[in-house]
Amino acid sequence: MLLKEIVQKLDLKVFTPEIDVERDVKDGYASDLLSDVMGGAKEGEIWITLQTHKNIVAVASLKDLAAIILVKGFEPDTDTKEAAVAEGIPLLGTESGAFELSGRLYNLFK
């Protein structure tokens, strides 16, 4: 599914309008532990987390993740946004919690 569709269907906020959202998303991964994401997430997945610091971009970029969704209205730190633009990782946001958002995303992929 295209990231663009996910952004529209889940009404996500886009923190990085500089980055195009025409990329393909294969699946989702929800976790706030960076080592868990390093060990478990797969290329092309979209990552749901409440972590907002710059290291999430490094992890997403190293794992070739499709994008990051910040939950519960959290906003990325300024240097997180800068790093995301530099690495080409779309940063998105939602007011929903991880549980609700994961469910809605899961249903899109069903």
Partner: peptide, 15 residues
């Protein structure tokens, strides 16, 4: 709190 230190680092390396 940053999401590190979950005790998965060394096992991840070994794996």
């Amino acid at each position: 709190e940053m999401g590190f230190g979950a005790g998965m680092g060394l096992p991840n390396i070994k794996d």
